[in-house]
């Protein structure tokens, strides 16, 4: 993988930056050039909530190349508190402990390595909130 392909996503992946339509107020992740709800091209970056709740989840047991050492791992569709939905691994939890509605928060983690001498990619994963 090229270095620019990694660094161009850093802001969005490290800080959970999405995009909001200035005309209808809808927010999106990842960023978009056009609002699919109202057609507006006037969108601006916005910071997304870092907490949310699990809507649905799975346990990936036969992972794609590059993710072998993390398997099995939980991947969930999460609805953030601002209403934006995001797909993410959920870590620091046993798969059988995950349930719909579980409160989770973003955490900064290693995601994968591009071979033995390539880029080490970081980004968001989510973990259960300890109240």
């Amino acid at each position: 993988m090229s270095v620019p392909r990694y660094w161009r996503e850093i802001k969005y992946r490290y800080r959970l930056i999405g995009e909001m339509c200035t005309d209808c107020g809808a927010a999106f992740f990842p960023r978009r050039a056009v609002c699919p709800r109202c057609g507006s091209k006037d969108l601006e970056e916005c910071k997304l909530s870092e907490k949310g709740a699990v809507v649905s989840w799975t346990v990936v047991r036969n992972p794609p190349a590059g993710y072998e050492k993390y398997a099995p791992y939980v991947v969930a569709l999460i609805e953030l508190d601002d209403g934006v939905r995001i797909l993410s691994q959920v870590v620091d939890v046993e798969p059988e402990e995950v349930e719909a509605g579980m409160r989770v928060e973003a955490t900064f983690r290693r995601v994968r390595e591009d071979g033995s001498s390539g880029i080490i990619e970081y980004g968001y994963k989510f973990r259960p909130v300890i109240e």
Binding site: V60, P63, P64, A65, Y73, L87, R112, G123
Partner: peptide, 26 residues
């Protein structure tokens, strides 16, 4: 098998979907 799973995951956004390690079956 891992190469096939990665190839099938190419139907999804590499930057924000396949990036999470989710498979098509996932």
């Amino acid at each position: 098998p891992g190469e096939v799973a990665a190839a099938l995951a190419m139907a999804e956004d590499q930057e924000y979907t396949a990036y999470t390690g989710v498979t098509k079956l996932g």
